[in-house]
């Protein structure tokens, strides 16, 4: 219960933190793309619905579209990447970087498509190549320390 409480408190604030750091002059990371990579490669599959909802609430804080659109924007890349999880078994940084790059491109594109289909356009559908670059570069480096901390540690899939 505590881990879920921590997730629903901290995950939305992570989106605002990324924006705050970017406004202070640090490289901008697409928080939704980073979360996609974590959910697809590291998180316990049984916990995915709840984790996805928390991430969607966070993205809805900083984006014009509603929560269900955010669920699709984050959830579809996760659903595509999830079957490839065995390939990432050793969690090489290279693979994580490539996955982050793919997600950083897919998330704005999906936001644009969903916005068009469901009548909820948003400014986040504009692709920013610097953001894609820094997400691919810094995302995997951030996963390592973050995955050792709660609440991500408690949601990580236990390898047998």
């Amino acid at each position: 219960m505590t881990r879920w409480l921590a997730w629903f408190v901290l995950a939305p604030q992570a989106f605002l933190l990324c924006g705050l750091l970017a406004s202070l002059g640090l490289p901008r990371i697409d928080c939704a793309a980073a979360m996609c990579v974590y959910l697809a490669l590291f998180a316990d599959v049984r916990a995915l619905p709840g984790l996805l909802l928390g991430a969607a609430v966070g993205r809805a804080l900083v984006d014009e579209a509603a929560i269900p659109v955010q669920i699709l924007v984050i959830g579809v890349p996760v659903a595509v990447l999830l079957p490839t999880r065995p390939l990432f078994y050793r969690h090489h940084l290279w693979w994580q970087g490539i996955a982050a790059l793919a997600c950083a491109i897919a998330v704005p594109k999906l936001a644009g498509l969903c916005g068009e289909w469901f009548g909820q356009p948003s400014a986040s559908s504009q692709l920013s190549w610097p953001t894609v670059f820094f997400t691919a570069l810094l995302g995997p480096l951030l996963f390592w320390p973050l995955s050792k901390l709660p609440p991500l540690r408690s949601f990580a899939e236990k390898l047998t």
Binding site: V45, R46, L48, P49, L52, L53, A66, I67, P68, V69, I71, L72, G75, V76, V78, A79, L82, F118
Partner: peptide
């Protein structure tokens, strides 16, 4: 669970 959530999102829309 993930697929059910995506389906729920579509119904939500």
């Amino acid at each position: 669970g993930l697929y059910a959530t995506l389906l729920l999102a579509l119904c939500w829309l």
